[in-house]
């Protein structure tokens, strides 16, 4: 088996966040709650956000759910990266992440941890695992409570 390939996919950072996630749970209070799932495999993500009073900045992100090493570590890394960001910045980062998974862009130095997900882009069937949580965050930020669907899916 080509372990080099696998080490590229399962980089130490990814495995550490999978094994010891820092952002599992629910924010307190919950200002936004969004579920995401990948219907083809059954992976789920329950994302909660705490915003500032004006609703312009993300104070905390937590996640629950079940999924593979890629999906879970992606959620944990994203939560770390989002704390303190404005909603506008967050939406830009989502776009940048999706571009990176298509091999189009990287994150700047201060967010370079997110770049470990580049290895996933070499495994096309696993890209959805990495993007599920970002897709869910986008829905959480863009949709008002009333119009929030029970689930968003990353099938598109």
């Amino acid at each position: 088996m080509s372990l080099d390939n696998l080490r590229n996919l399962y980089q130490q950072v990814i495995l550490e966040h999978y094994k010891k996630p820092r952002n599992r749970g629910k924010t307190s209070p919950v200002h936004r709650h969004q579920r995401g799932h990948n219907p083809s495999c059954g992976d789920t993500i329950d994302l909660t956000l705490q915003l500032d009073e004006a609703g312009n900045h993300i104070q905390d992100v937590k996640f629950e759910g079940e999924g593979c090493a890629i999906a879970m570590s992606s959620a944990d890394l994203m939560a770390d990266a989002m704390r303190g960001k404005s909603v506008k910045e967050a939406l830009e980062m989502i776009q940048r992440f999706q571009a990176m998974m298509k091999g189009e862009a990287e994150f700047p130095k201060e967010l370079r941890k997110l770049n470990v997900m580049q290895g996933v882009a070499q495994f096309p069937v696993r890209i959805k695992c990495a993007t599920l949580t970002w897709h869910t965050l986008k829905a959480a930020l863009e949709l008002a409570h009333s119009e929030t669907p029970e689930y968003v899916s990353n099938e598109s």
């Binding site: 088996m1 080509s2 390939n5 696998l6 996919l9 399962y10 083809s40 495999c41 059954g42 992976d43 999924g67 593979c68 090493a69 890629i70 999906a71 495994f123 069937v125 696993r126 695992c129």
Partner: peptide
């Protein structure tokens, strides 16, 4: 090992299995 991770690792060894529900 999550089944999807397992399936990817086995695929690297040429082995096709199903992972999911």
């Amino acid at each position: 090992v999550h089944p999807h991770d397992l399936s990817t690792i086995l695929d690297e060894a040429g082995v096709a299995i199903r992972a999911g529900h």
